[in-house]
């Protein structure tokens, strides 16, 4: 009886976690570069004993390409293919696919949270900036056009799913993800950069709504399981009549 109750309760906990993750995905559906997350579940198997319910195998980000969209930002970049921008703040390195950067007075290129894009420095007197698909940055300065101003490198990981999430869009390397491998976009790599574009989140609203409905019903069904187990205990107790 208790086994049934605990199995049903584990199902309720799983669906609750599922709902939390879907809600988080939906909340970030409009955040550029956001990667939707998913939890995976599996049945608990303890040495052949069945019926111990379900357990979460953890939450991981799904690195499926989001749609690229033209944007109006001054230094917007989108990655078309695999890879991450390398950003740095206070000596800490992180990796992101959110490419909404802007120029700082000190010449660096930073995102809204102050993370600096590595590998590029824009002179203060630059009039126009252009980034090629291969990551090379060129600027037009007074008296000189098409001056090289660095190259944006990307990082790839053998196991990006094991990156540690600092936020929905920012990740750091973990022992399981392996070390970052720095590569040039273009140059035979399948990945290219698109300047003046942003990668939209890869959250599908329709799929998320469907998932919410399924999770909610599954939660209810498991709650009924708990109730049934409880009811059986009551009936068993009624075997002893005074």
């Amino acid at each position: 009886m208790n086994r049934a109750m605990y199995a049903a309760a584990s199902g309720m906990a799983a669906q609750q976690q599922n709902l939390e993750i879907i809600a988080d995905n939906l909340a970030n559906a409009d955040v550029a570069g956001f990667k939707s997350a998913a939890a995976s579940f599996a049945d608990v198997n303890a040495g052949g004993t069945f019926g111990l319910g379900t357990e979460s195998l953890g939450k991981h980000a799904l690195f499926v390409q989001g749609k690229l969209e033209k944007s109006g930002g001054p230094f917007d970049l989108a990655i078309d293919g695999a890879g991450f921008f390398c950003v740095e703040k206070d000596g800490q390195f992180a990796y992101t696919r959110a490419g909404s950067f802007s120029r700082s007075p000190d010449g660096s290129v930073r995102n809204a949270d102050g993370w600096r894009l590595r590998g590029v420095r824009i002179p203060a007197d630059a009039l126009r900036v252009d980034v090629g698909g291969d990551g090379r940055v060129f600027v037009d300065r007074p008296g000189a056009t098409h001056v090289a101003a660095g190259r944006i490198d990307l990082a790839s990981f053998l196991a990006p799913e094991h990156l540690r999430a600092l936020s929905g869009t920012l990740f750091t390397a973990s022992p399981q993800s392996g070390a970052p491998q720095i590569f040039h976009p273009g140059d035979g790599a399948k990945t290219t950069l698109a300047f003046g574009m942003l990668e939209k989140s890869n959250v599908s609203i329709v799929e998320s709504m469907m998932a919410i409905m399924t999770a909610q019903r599954a939660y209810e069904a498991n709650a009924k399981g708990v109730q049934a187990a409880d009811e059986m205990l009551r009936i068993a107790n009624n075997l002893h009549r005074s």
């Binding site: 049934a4 584990s10 799983a14 049945d43 019926g51 319910g53 399924t214 599954a218 399981g225 068993a236």
Partner: peptide, 27 residues
């Protein structure tokens, strides 16, 4: 019969708990 009904409940709740487990095969 009561024990059997209890085992049936064990199985049904186990299956329900794993309605979101990919690749799970119901008992």
């Amino acid at each position: 019969a009561m024990r059997a009904a209890r085992s049936q409940l064990d199985v049904a709740t186990q299956n329900l708990a794993n309605v979101s487990s990919d690749g799970f095969r119901r008992l």
